[in-house]
Structure formats: C-alpha cells, structure tokens
Write a protein that binds this DNA or RNA. Sequence first.
DNA 1: TTGCAATACTAACAAGCGTTAGTTAGTTTA
DNA 2: TAAACTAACTAACGCTTGTTAGTATTGCAA
Lengths: 191, 191
Amino acid sequence: MSPRKLEIFQTALSLMKSKGYANTTMRDIASAVNMEAASLYNHITSKEDLLAITCFDLANQFEKGILEVNDIYFDAKEKLRMAIEAHTQILTANLDASYVFLHEWRHLSADKLNEFKQRRDNYENGFIEILKLGENEGVFNEVDEKFVVITILSTLNATIEWYKPNGSLSPKQVAQKLSDFILNGLLNTKN
Amino acid sequence: MSPRKLEIFQTALSLMKSKGYANTTMRDIASAVNMEAASLYNHITSKEDLLAITCFDLANQFEKGILEVNDIYFDAKEKLRMAIEAHTQILTANLDASYVFLHEWRHLSADKLNEFKQRRDNYENGFIEILKLGENEGVFNEVDEKFVVITILSTLNATIEWYKPNGSLSPKQVAQKLSDFILNGLLNTKN
DNA sequence: TTGCAATACTAACAAGCGTTAGTTAGTTTA
DNA sequence: TAAACTAACTAACGCTTGTTAGTATTGCAA
C-alpha cells in the first residue's frame, strides 16, 4: 500500500468514525487529503472498497488470533485470557478501523455482508470452544454460551469507547483489566 | 399517537433496525405501509423526526428509571440490580426502538446530537453514583468508574443482540442473568 | 532529455434522496 | 346540507451522491 493510499484510508476511517460511513462522502475524504473526489479513484476502486478492505483485514487479524489460541493446549481460564489479549491488541492498535468494523459493517453489499456475518459467527464459535472447555473443567459457571460470548465480546469491543492510546494503560494492561472483570465480576470478594 | 402514525413508526423502526437509518428511505417506509412517500408527511414532519422522537422517548424512559433508583435509600448492590432491571425492562419492551436508539443516534442533527450526548452522560453518571456508593461500602472492587460504567452498559445493551421476546426468559430473568454476570463474573467459585 | 506511467484536475452524468406543491376523495362537524 | 378537516394521491423540484470521461501535469526511468 503506497503512502498516499494509506493516507486516504486513515483519513477516511477517521472521518467515518466521527460522522459514520453514510455521512462521509467521497468529497469529504478528498478534501481532507487535499485533492478532488475524482482523484481518489486513482488509488481506490470504490467507497465500499474502503469499508470492505477495512472490515476483512480486521476480520483476518481477529481470526488469526483466536485460531492461535485454540491451537495450543492449555486450560480454559488461560486460553480465555489469551483470546482476550489478542482481541484487545488488535482493537487498540486499530482504533479508527475497529470503530468502522464494529459499527459500519452493515453497509457492506449483500455478498460481502453474508461473508462478514459468517466469519463473525466463526469467531464467536472460537470463543464458545473455550467456554465449553471451561465448563468441562468446572471453572466456568455459565451454560448459556450464546449469552456469554456476546456479553464478553461486547465488553471487549467497548474498549474503543474509553481507551486512550496515549494514556497510562498499555494494551496488555487493558486486557488484564478486561479479563479480571469478566472472570471475577464487580463484587469485592476479599472480605 | 394515531394508529396510522404508530404503524408508520413501528414499520420505520423495524426497517431501520435491519437496514440502518441512512439506508432506509422514505419510499421504503411508505411502501411498507402501502402508501406513497409524500403521504407520510401527513403524519410526521420529517425523517429525522422519526429518529429524534424515538431517541428522546427512550432517553426519557431510561432517565426516569435511574432517577427512581437513585431517589431511594438502599445498598449499592441492590441499587445496581434495580438499575439493571429498569434498563433491561425498557430494552426488551422496545427492541426495534432500542436498536435505533443505540446505533443510529449519530444521525441526529447537531443540536439534538448535543442534547442526546449530554443526557447519555447524565445517565452514565447515575450509574457512577451507584458505583461510588458501592466502593464506599466496600462491596465493589473497581475504582475506574468510567471503565466499569461503559462495560456494564455495553453488557446490558448487548441484550438486544441475543434476547428473543418469545423465548423462555422473562425480562426480569434476563435482568437477573445480567446482574449475576456483572457482579460475580464467569468463574465458578463454588469449588 | 525524452517518454511513459502515475496521479492529479475539470466537468458532468445518472440515480436517488427528502421534501413540497397542488389536488382529490372521503369523513367528520356545525 | 354545507363547510372543514383528514389523509391519500401525482408530479416534480432542488440537491447530493458515487462515479466516469477526458485531459493536463508530474516525476521517475531510459
């Protein structure tokens, strides 16, 4: 990806994060990188491409993460922590892209939309595998896996709402925080 | 609200839930209620009105819920359970509207957008009040309130992704499930 | 220095959008 | 019964959108 193309993507994602995909026009993007809308088409093929490439690139990263975790032999608790950390690393390293990925995927055209949904379900199943393992081990106490996986992913994805990349928390520390909350809950059990 | 107007709202919200606000045209809505787009304007004043009325009506309900909880004297744990139940009742009773409320509010025009954000912050502060109480009581073990409140609300709001209104769970039971997970976490502490 | 991609521009198109104007039929009210 | 109101229609307007066509300019390779 050429520097100019990268600039276009980053600018587009930043605009889409703050205004939404539908409200971000090609002219908005062009103006933000000091060129005319028509010139964008020397670098990208369509507006939807900006969205599709962003969504599927992130999907690839998430899938790689969960596959690596589920390929190794470990106990459920540790696997969950690892999956959470992988997810968090990707989110925090791509804040704008993640926002678009999480909130604008429905604007994909029918074919890509179907592929996206299917891969999202696959990703959820990767987490469910860990949850089932944990139930068999007797360490997780919840049997409604659909509920738990959606709750966990919502908690993880909410990170982009409060995380400040220049703040004091490293992505690893964020993942620790998230894992602790998910595993132990809000109640203080020390006394 | 006349029956016809109600029909228009419900139809519009259902369409917006499945296709998004921007991708739902006045002609789509009109066609779904068997009339012409222009005729819609005998019942509503604009497309944005559909969105604004939906958003602010729900905002009113959420605010009423948290105010009632914070107006009574109780311990933090019980107050949090009550706030969660109020939130859950509103969500499950207005699934389509909640979806639009949660995902399409950014399409509000500037003025209304500001009001919306401010009221959302107020609502978060209602929960933070409970969290602070819980910390003072020593029953909650988390000090990063911004993180916790966003995590809790994300967990609650994810309900609309998995809840089936004709399923076996009542809203009250859903609220119980959510509270248990938030308070106790995923780990089985019985052994 | 010449030539050739790469990249930018201007202009415009075709489609779709929310909305308004003007009108008509049906229903309620005085 | 006459008047007023409600709610539907057709037609069209003005605007914005993503995108294309055609052309100029830039910058590197020979």
